[in-house]
């Protein structure tokens, strides 16, 4: 199934027909947005366009197809595979992963119970974010992460949107498959939000390597414990750690002889250094950030916080 099929599988009625009929290179499609009684918008090759009823991209809003409530309702039904109950947790989180690893963000009216989101109703806004992997983005980082055949416990730190999950995924893939620096290792991935492997019906939609086992949708702390006990991984990868429970599980995995690669929201190594739990256990810190010109920077630090390498 190619990208177009994967997207059109959930886009019903007119939006599906229009997108299918577009004469564009679908590998450059980034987003499809549906809002009730608003134009059908796509992000293509970094630029936003309206989709016209003549199955063409346009910048003229008067020419755009206007999405109906029925389009959104039918798209949501197809997205949830006519089984709303099966996606309750995903709906609480605000997104559903579909075949191909594409993430569909949903918004509507939140149903609150005891100050927590219980469910979402009147789903009216749908944003299909087309998945894209970056093979090789970890090439510059990998040489710093190994001590012979052993991998350092590594923490990837970046603000949202700087690419830490993409980097983590590529590290996982290369460590699992084996590369010039290291032979292939068994990798366990705890993918609480289905962002790393993007499992659909239990099958990773992203390439996470040939020796990778994935626990999908499982809380990080429990997932790490389960992986250590059941799959005997050499390396455990986990996204967005933060709570004391997560750190406890990370420590447990480390004491069991597994190398841990994790990500964390943050900006600077000095901010992370304030957290004694974190600084004392990881051997390498990879900081991703944007410089003042908006260019992505990768900085690599050792356990003491001394910069080892990196740059734009």
């Amino acid at each position: 199934m190619d990208k177009l099929d994967e997207i059109c599988r959930i886009l019903r009625d007119m939006p599906g027909d229009l997108i299918r009929g577009l004469d564009i290179n679908f590998t450059l499609l980034q987003e499809v947005r549906l809002r009730p009684f608003r134009p059908l918008i796509i992000k293509y090759n970094g630029k936003e366009y309206f989709v016209s009823v003549r199955k063409k991209l346009t910048e003229d809003i008067n020419d755009a197809y206007i999405v109906t409530g029925n389009d959104i309702r039918n798209t949501f039904l197809a997205l949830s595979e006519f089984s709303t109950y099966a996606f309750e947790e995903e709906m609480r989180q605000g997104y559903i992963t579909i075949a191909g690893g594409h993430r569909v963000g949903i918004a509507g009216k939140a149903v609150i119970e005891n100050a927590k989101i219980k469910n979402m109703k009147y789903i009216s806004f749908i944003n299909i974010r087309v998945a894209g992997e970056r093979h090789g983005c970890a090439d510059r980082v990998l040489p710093y992460l190994f001590d012979g055949n052993n991998m350092f416990h590594t923490l990837i730190i970046s603000p949202p949107g700087a690419g830490k999950t993409t980097l983590l995924r590529d590290i996982v893939r290369q460590v699992s498959n084996g590369c010039a620096l290291v032979c292939g290792k068994n990798v366990g991935v705890v993918d609480e939000r289905s962002e790393i492997a993007a499992c659909y019906h239990g099958i990773p939609q992203n390439d996470v390597g040939i020796r990778t086992d994935v626990i999908d949708g499982c809380p990080k702390a429990e997932g790490m414990m389960m992986l250590v006990r059941s799959m005997s991984p050499d390396v455990i990868a986990v996204d967005e750690i933060g709570t004391a429970k997560d750190m406890e599980a990370v420590s447990y995995a480390m004491t069991c002889g597994c190398s841990v690669i994790a990500t964390l929201h943050g900006n600077e190594i000095k901010n992370i250094r304030n957290n004694k739990n974190i600084i004392s256990v990881f051997g390498r810190y990879v900081i991703l950030k944007f410089n003042e010109y908006g260019k992505r920077q990768i900085l690599i630090y050792d356990q003491r916080g001394v910069q080892m390498g990196g740059g734009d």
């Binding site: 006519f82 089984s83 709303t84 109950y85 099966a86 309750e88 469910n119």
Partner: peptide, 10 residues
Amino acid sequence: ELGSSDRESE
């Protein structure tokens, strides 16, 4: 009505 509501209602 199958599949149209939350788990408990279903």
